[in-house]
Amino acid sequence: MKVKITVNGMLYNKHIPNDMMLLEFLRKYGYVSVKRGCDTSNCGLCTVWVEGKPVLSCSYPAARADGKQITTLEGVKEEAASFGRYMTAQGAEQCGYCSPGFIMAVLAMRRELTDPTEEEISQYLAGNLCRCSGYAGQTRALRAWLKDKPWEKEGQA
């Protein structure tokens, strides 16, 4: 079918297979930050935003994205890099394979929750699995980032 999908502000007018998933669409057009970690909608590695909301691109039909705005890590590069520095300052990225999906969830959380408690943070991010870190390093990075609020200084949305 024919779809019009906007990825990070760029419009894609494409013919796609009807059963294509958004993940496959995004990787096909070079958004390699989007990773697949499972086949059962459980791991969160493929997290991207549809109209600003985090979804699992492995399960989201590309056809359903017709007419919608998609954001991947490549579309929020600077803010991701800013948070990424908090991650690497802890060594919390480890193998890095879950980092893009995790960072997309973190940036969505920042937009959705105001002054979240530690429990709210961990609830919000519970869908992002990481096998390397045991999450404690991620938590330290998050704490420091939420305390510093670099997005205010950097004048980001």
Binding site: V32, S33, V34, K35, T72, L73, E74, K77, A80, A81, F83, G84, R85, M87, T88, A89, G91, E93, C95, G96, Y97, S99, P100, I103
Partner: peptide
């Protein structure tokens, strides 16, 4: 010393550095 990983920025930046990429 607690030195950050050399590949940290590439990994957290979602760069295509893995086999499938």
């Amino acid at each position: 010393q607690p030195i950050p990983k050399l590949d940290g920025a590439a990994l957290t930046g979602g760069k295509g550095v893995y086999t499938e990429d």
